[in-house]
């Protein structure tokens, strides 16, 4: 399938089940809400070595937050319940509680709880105060700028990680431009995040390695510099490849995000973009297969 001189390859993205949670961070101003959120989501690009994948889902207006202040909605993804709980608690304690004027609330609700204020309250050294309003229990932990307000629990939900597509092109300039546009389109969609820096990843990986202790290594089929020595999937004009990885709460969220991103690349009508492909492992990694042609049909 070719549209606007860009070929949509007949392949699929392969995704896998994850656990996720949504958190709402608020602060005195949008700037400080973003500072706290960026700190929380730092070093959370891939579960391969970060423990979780996290990103900013959306910026919230004061009307959308529980305390009427500017806020940010975060999504955190991990492979196991235990790791998700550990990552959220550590990051909340070290990145949100430490950030000036911040407060932290759960952004979703489910039966599976993750300790938040329930554990962080001990920082209050006995001066912490619990408040129950409606069906929410909040902890008021005294800190040097007043109080850190933190909901007792965050909640875990089912999610999908690893939705992706690859953009193959002739020049890095054209590729970055198209990728950035795709990222900005995907960022408008709720329930998804792009965990990598700027939403784009250049070191796409495959499962396993020739080295025993490594669980992932470079996806050599898409490395342009290896074209002469491995069974490459790149033609002679595809000199650069960038990948956009999407984590979402449901299959339909990932499909919407992939569709928006791919459509944006196609509509860029850039002659230096050759084709769009997707990363998969022959169906061995995960149960979710996102066929590019089906998504764009």
């Amino acid at each position: 399938m070719t549209r606007n001189s860009i070929t949509l390859q007949n392949t699929f993205a392969e995704a896998f089940p994850m656990k996720a949670s949504r958190l709402i961070v608020t602060a005195y101003s949008k700037k400080w809400a973003l500072e706290a959120a960026n700190s929380f989501t730092g070093f959370a690009t891939s579960v391969i070595a970060c423990g979780c994948e996290a990103g900013i889902e959306s910026v919230l207006s004061p009307k959308e937050t529980p305390d009427g202040r500017p806020g940010v909605s975060l999504l955190v993804f991990s492979m196991s319940e235990k790791e998700l709980a550990k990552q959220i608690l550590n990051r909340a304690g070290q990145c949100i509680m430490t950030s000036p004027t911040s407060a932290l609330y759960a952004g979703n609700i489910s039966e599976k709880k993750i300790n938040l204020g329930k554990s962080l309250r001990y920082f209050g050294d006995g001066f912490q105060i619990a408040k129950v309003l409606g069906n929410k229990r909040l902890w008021r932990i005294p800190v040097m700028d007043g109080e850190f307000i933190c909901e007792e629990f965050a909640y875990q939900t089912k999610a999908i990680g690893g939705g992706n597509f690859l953009i193959l092109g002739k020049t890095i300039d054209a590729l970055l431009k198209a990728s950035e546009k795709a990222v900005s389109e995907i960022n408008k969609i709720k329930n998804v995040i792009l965990p990598f820096p700027g939403g784009i990843v250049r070191s796409g990986s495959k499962v396993g390695s020739k080295y025993k202790n490594l669980i992932a290594s470079t996806n050599f089929e898409y490395c342009p510099t290896l074209r002469g020595i491995v069974n490459s999937k790149l033609d002679h004009t595809s000199n650069f490849v960038l990948e956009i990885v999407i984590d979402g709460l449901t299959e339909s969220d990932i499909i919407s995000a992939m569709r928006a991103g791919i459509r944006s690349v196609i509509n860029s009508d850039n002659e230096n973009i050759n084709s769009i492909s997707a990363g998969n492992y022959g169906g061995k990694l995960g149960p979710y297969l996102f066929w590019l042609k089906k998504i764009m049909s």
Partner: peptide
């Protein structure tokens, strides 16, 4: 008692509910 965040939460809660 300046800018109590809990009070903001409570105000928002009472206003909405």
């Amino acid at each position: 008692f300046v800018e109590p965040i809990f009070f903001k939460y409570l105000k928002n809660y009472l206003k909405n509910k």
